[in-house]
Structure formats: C-alpha cells, structure tokens
C-alpha cells in the first residue's frame, strides 16, 4: 500500500534521509522505530505529502502523494505537533474535515463522542495538548481513511486513553482494512500493536521485519544437563547467542521450534525450558552489533 523507494532528502548540508526503502502492506500496522533525530518525522512528512523528496519515489496505492489530492483524500496524518484553526470548535473543525474527506462519517462522529467525552462546542486550541490529541484521533477516525499516518501518536495520552485509542485504530484496521503507519522511539510501545517494524537510524533503514515471523522463528531455550554439555547439541537452526554457566546452557536459536526441541530432547537434558522473548531481545540478537548500538537509543 505504501511504498518508498530510494528516498533521499537533505536540509541544506544535513542529510536527513539517505536512500530509504520501506514497504507497508495493505491492512497492516507498521511501526517506524528510531531514536530522536533519526529522521522519522521527515520520512512521515514525505508520506503525508508535505515534503518534496530530493530523489526517490513515494507511492500510496500506486500513486505519488506529493501534490496529489486524490491520494490525500483517503489519507489521514496526525502529526506530533498538532495544528487546528484558531477560533474553531470541534464541531466546526469536523464540518471543515467533512467537506474535505469524501469518506467522512457523521454517524461515527456522534458514536465516538461518548468515548472521548469532550464537548463538541469547545474551541480546540483552548484544550490541553492531550485533549487536542484525542480530538485529532476522533476526527481522524471519522474520516474513515484507508491510510493513517501517525507520528508519535500516543504521546501525552494517559494509559486508559492510549488503550482506547489503539482499540479504535485496530478495530478500523480489522473492519475497514485500514493501513496504519505509526512512529515511536519506544519499542515496547509498539510491540503489541504492530505486525511489521522498520528501524530508522541516522537517516537509513537498518532493518525491516515481520514481527510474527520474528517471534515464531527465534527461540530462547534454557537447557540443563546432569553431566557434560554435549558439544553437538543442535544440528539445525542458527545459534544467535549462546551462554554457558556450568552445566546450564542458554540458547537463542533461529529455526523451526518443534524440530529444535526434538533435537535437544535427544541429548537428554535435565531441564528444558522455552523462555519468552521480548521484541527487544529479538532485535538485539538478530541484529548483532547494530542491535547493541540501537538498543541504547531505542529503549
């Protein structure tokens, strides 16, 4: 749905993005991760059609975004730094958006009012930052976009509201096959929501992964033996990490889970545990050296 090819962008001498490639599938939730200053907002402003790239292509549904109202009319962008017309109430802003987005849904607007419980007559610019963010989601969801681009979306929301907002967005993904791209500098924040993750660092994409693949592929095994640890414990799979403490071995292995387990069983371990892996660990082991580099900035 969203395709970025070899995108580069400089601000004066500073190269903000350097040959970035990403690919977001329809009806998926894509997490764009990266430390502050990695270029997430710059990339997102390209996706929203705000910035014009120096080189490369950005297409959504096969069409370029920049200066293309046809694409933008099914795309909603919620920036980190919100902007609403001064003097405008929520209701007035809703009417303005309704005139812009052909898929605007007034029914939803009314249904969602109790969820956010903010008076529609209130002026948006007089609301707190957190409430403004809620308004942005409220209005954004009512536009029933096919693509949502969210820059640090839940900053400033309390945990209850975060949950509500994510539920609404994910519900949209499920019901309307909405494609969502969301940026964050916090891996844990996105862990439960995203199915794909891209890590942006110093203007380049370090890695782009399907989280389900990662989770089913990489395993953390703790094995204890009565005597010596057999040297050829595993025949298949790739050992990403091995840690031995006396007769206890900790293994991070990439490979088919059932096959790996049966191989280990053959060596007759005293204990064999499959431990849960956090996304953080997967990245660190998967990426090796770079993983440690970005660990310090992501978490």
């Amino acid at each position: 749905m969203i395709e970025v090819r070899e995108l580069s962008k400089s601000f004066g001498q500073f190269k903000a993005l350097d040959k970035v490639n990403i690919n977001v599938n329809k009806s998926s939730v894509y997490g764009l991760l990266g430390p502050n200053g990695a270029g997430k907002t710059t990339l997102i402003k390209h996706l929203a059609g705000v910035y014009r790239q120096d080189t490369g292509t950005i297409t959504i549904d096969g069409q370029p975004v920049y200066e293309n109202p046809a694409v933008k009319s099914f795309l909603v962008y919620i920036p980190d730094d919100l902007y609403f017309f001064s003097q405008y109430s929520i209701e007035e802003t809703a009417r303005f958006y309704a005139s812009l987005y052909p898929t605007w849904d007034w029914e939803r607007y009314r249904l969602l009012q109790p969820v956010f419980s903010i008076e529609p007559q209130r002026r948006i610019t007089r609301l707190s930052k957190g409430m403004q963010k809620q308004v942005a989601f409220w209005l954004g969801i009512c536009a029933t976009p096919r693509v949502m681009i969210l820059d640090e979306p839940v900053d400033g929301l309390d945990p209850v509201m975060r949950k509500k907002v994510w539920n609404l967005v994910l519900q949209d993904v499920a019901e309307h096959e909405t494609t969502v791209l969301v940026s964050s500098h916090n891996l844990r924040e996105l862990e439960d929501i995203c199915d794909h993750v891209g890590i942006l660092h110093n203007g380049t994409i370090l890695v782009e992964k399907d989280l389900d693949d990662l989770k089913t592929d990489v395993h953390k095994l703790q094995v204890a033996f009565a005597g010596e640890v057999p040297p050829d414990l595993l025949q298949t799979g790739t050992v990403l990490h091995r840690e031995q403490n006396g007769s206890i071995v900790l293994l991070i292995v990439k490979g088919d889970k059932d096959r790996l387990l049966s191989e280990v069983q053959r060596a007759n371990p005293v204990i064999l545990d499959v431990l849960p892996l956090t996304l953080e660990e997967i990245f660190i082991y998967e990426l090796g050296g770079i993983g440690y580099d970005i660990q310090s900035v992501l978490i």
Binding site: K45, P79, D81, L82, F84
Partner: peptide, 21 residues
Amino acid sequence: RYLHSRRATAVMHSLPFNRYT
C-alpha cells in the same frame, strides 16, 4: 501565515489540496 509555522504548514499541506487550491 500558515506558511511561516512548521506545525501549520505540515497540517495544511497534508490535507487533500494541492498548492494552487
């Protein structure tokens, strides 16, 4: 004036208009 504020520029240009509109 929206052209002179980063926030306003980002939002106004992400809406379904082109620059001529």
